[in-house]
Design a protein around this nucleic acid. Structure first.
Length: 703
DNA sequence: CTCACATGCAACAGG
DNA sequence: CTGTTGCATGTGAGG
């Protein structure tokens, strides 16, 4: 009997959320005393998108397939800003690994196993409907064109059709609205950590409104299936899984989200409605929607705030108070939270400005988007875990045209200055701005690379921060002792001790906050570079990693990144001749001349290339051949690298320069999907050249 | 027409 | 004979 996502009323959820928010405010207030650190911003909308898709996929997807019009992408187009492509969205490929990512954000065990296709479908559907309404009522958020979802940040007052996000949730299942959901029940029911959030009734001193509402709150979360009672139940009450999801989400974000934050976030009603409809009234549909929203909030809104706050440890009270519609509400701070020594978060150095653009994917941490990547794409990418790679996989195609179209049209803030991408003035955002889109062998866009990975990365960082508050600014010098065999001729970038400093990070360089311990990444590129274990076996390419392993990898990658300033140099989609047994890869002339050392003679120079994915150092030779009146640049001795990484035609390599350590890095990114052969997608002959989009992608990697 | 690039293939080296 | 090296040539995109 659940009404699913229909909007019959909004009281329940709204109220329930309100309570939660109140509690959160309280928590926040306590934290303020301690410190509030903005979350690191890694990704922006793009990533959101990717993540979103992840969430969307759900078991229930199948149930609502019929409801959803996969082909209809209009829904979000407006409401949710034309999302950059979702990784799985357009592609029918089942390869989308999104599901994996899903689980992360929402630890809940509740099923998150949806097929990628479903995700895609979901999004597509969502988009379709929203569009209409969106245009009418809302203007695209100033946030950025990149915003995937058009959630508006409009102040409460302007809300035309905008609903508070959380309120909207309330609408979803709501029935009559009278019922007030008591967050307490949520927490109480949750075995996971009740004590952490000791939001007992007494803990809250709700405003009158809330108090009255509380009386009607359900005492227990109903198990799924008890829909019948719904009528008075809140969105959550009808489905314990939702409660769990929300609870988990709150727990994860308790440090950086306040009630205010939540209140300030608005979604257009039409969007929600459309989404609800599209997702179907099923439980899964609800979960998807909830996840989607939470994800969005977490990814965009929270990050935005974090970025906005200048001081790492100072909470922006003004934000809270100003927007707080409910000044009266207050409650006892929960000691658990307050006591959290880690409450203070350090802002990520590299997330400087709240740019509308989401920081691109981490170079090492491919975003999960890719359906194609699902197995491969980024999955292939080094350090990416499978899931990550999966997203990337589709990237393989990167046919310039596709890629560029995507990047350029949607995310590519930068002009296609192929060679100068690195020089962009936006250090942190070098790649952040880019989203990836993957295409399947048929040229269909598989997914958008982008964000999930970053999201994961962010989570990892946050976790580290909590554990190691003081680490944030500590940069471990990464002294990789490369085995590098650099010969006399070997080229190494001049490095500065690997010490990171803003100074070192002029525009092009991406600053990676040092991570304390683990390793991993996300830029779309290959998996995360492991710190240095040269010992790591090459075979560890992301593609092979299981999704569950991805988390570790990501963390590694993050660490890795944090220790390096990577500059994207160039990327090359591999041709048959590049992956053949000749052991040489033709490099794009323009990029080679722009970013690699100038060659005096055709014999070239040897360059130690550290494999980002494995930390293994390959001694390659960079040279050129005279070709007519021009030159043809080559990277030789690549055979082992290619084999080790299992690179094939259609895959690509990305070269980076680590300014910090003065070395070159290479990453092999596999885009081919496990099933279908990548061959079909051979990039057009000239794709390398014009693939500004590819460049953008690469940048993300760097990021 | 020019340029960049992918690839064919001849020349060469080593076993 | 086989594998490698280096050049030449064909092809497609862009001007």
């Amino acid at each position: 009997m659940k009404r699913g996502l229909e909007y019959h009323g909004k009281q329940d959820l709204e109220d329930g959320l309100e309570n939660v928010m109140v509690a959160m405010d309280d928590i926040q207030s306590h934290q303020q005393t301690t410190e509030f650190v903005p979350m690191e911003e890694e990704q922006v909308l793009g990533s959101i998108v990717g993540d979103t898709e992840i969430f969307l996929d759900g078991d229930g997807s199948h149930s609502h397939h019929h409801h959803l019009d996969v082909n209809n992408t209009s829904i979000f187009s407006t409401d949710f800003l034309p999302l950059p492509d979702f990784p799985c969205m357009s592609s029918s490929s089942s390869t989308c690994s999104a599901p994996t990512a899903l689980s992360k954000p929402f630890p809940t065990s509740s099923s998150s196993s949806s097929t990628s296709s479903s995700n895609s479908a979901s999004w597509a559907i969502l988009k379709s409907d929203a569009e209409e309404d969106v245009h009418k009522n809302i203007q695209p958020p100033a946030l950025s064109s990149t915003t995937s979802m058009e959630l508006s940040l409009l102040p409460p007052e302007d809300d035309v059709d905008c609903l508070n996000v959380m309120e909207d949730l309330g609408y979803m299942d709501l029935i009559d609205g009278n019922e007030f959901w008591d967050p307490c029940t949520l927490f109480q029911s949750d075995n996971q950590n009740p004590q952490d959030y000791n939001m007992s009734d007494q803990s809250f001193q709700l405003s009158q409104d809330h108090q009255q509402n509380q009386e009607s709150k359900p005492q227990q979360i109903e198990e799924e299936g008890d829909d019948d009672q719904n009528d008075g139940l809140s969105f959550f009450t009808g489905n314990s899984e939702l409660a769990v999801i929300f609870f988990e989400w709150l727990k994860q974000n308790k440090d950086y989200i306040s009630a205010e934050d939540m209140r300030s976030i608005k979604l257009k009603r039409s969007t929600i409605e459309s989404a609800s409809k599209r997702l179907g009234g099923t439980k899964e549909g609800k979960k998807q929607l909830l996840r989607l929203i939470l994800e969005w909030v977490e990814q965009y809104q929270l990050q935005k705030k974090a970025a906005a706050s200048d001081s790492p440890c100072q909470y922006q009270e003004s934000q809270l108070h100003d927007s707080n519609p409910n000044p009266n509400s207050s409650f006892q701070y929960n000691n658990a939270v307050a006591s959290d020594p880690n409450a203070c978060f350090y802002p990520s150095p590299w997330m400087p400005t709240p740019s509308p653009y989401i920081p691109g994917p981490d170079p090492f941490y491919p975003t999960p988007m890719a359906p194609g990547y699902t197995g491969d794409s980024y999955s292939n990418v080094p350090s990416f875990t499978n899931m990550e790679y999966q997203t990337m996989e589709s990237a393989q195609s990167w046919p310039p045209s596709q890629f560029s179209a995507m990047a350029a049209s949607q995310y590519n803030p930068f002009p296609e200055n192929e060679s100068n991408l690195a020089t962009q003035a936006n250090p942190q955002g070098l790649f952040s701005q880019y989203s990836y889109q993957l295409y399947d062998g048929n040229g269909e866009r598989l997914a958008k690379l982008g964000s999930s990975a970053t999201k994961e990365a962010r989570k990892k960082r946050m976790a580290r921060q909590r554990r190691l508050p003081s680490h944030h600014y500590r940069h471990h010098s990464h002294q990789t002792q490369h085995q590098s065999q650099s010969s006399d001729q070997s080229l190494r970038i001049v490095g500065e001790n690997c010490t990171m400093s803003p100074a070192n990070n002029p525009g092009n360089w991406v600053y990676w906050p040092s991570a304390a311990s683990s390793p991993m990444i996300m830029v779309p590129p290959p998996e995360a570079p492991q710190p240095h274990p040269m010992t790591e076996r090459p075979g560890m390419q992301p593609q092979n990693h299981q999704k569950h392993a991805s988390a570790d990898k990501r963390s590694q990658s993050q660490n890795w990144k944090t220790e390096k300033n990577l500059k994207f140099l160039l990327q090359k989609v591999l041709k048959q001749s590049d992956v053949g047994n000749l052991g040489r890869i033709v490099l794009p002339k323009k990029e080679a001349e722009s970013h690699l050392p100038e060659l005096e003679s055709r014999d070239g120079i040897s360059i130690a290339m550290e494999d980002i994915g494995t930390s293994r150092v390959w001694n390659m030779k960079y040279r050129f051949w005279p070709n007519n009146k021009s030159r043809m640049y080559l990277l030789e001795n690549t055979g082992d690298f290619v084999r080790t990484n299992g690179l094939q035609e259609g895959d690509f390599i990305v070269l980076y320069a680590d300014t910090k350590c003065g070395k070159y890095l290479i990453r092999g990114v596999k885009v081919r999907q496990t099933g279908p052969k990548a061959e079909g997608k051979k990039p057009a002959k000239k794709n390398v050249r014009n693939s500004s989009s590819a460049i953008a992608l690469m940048k993300q990697l760097v990021k």
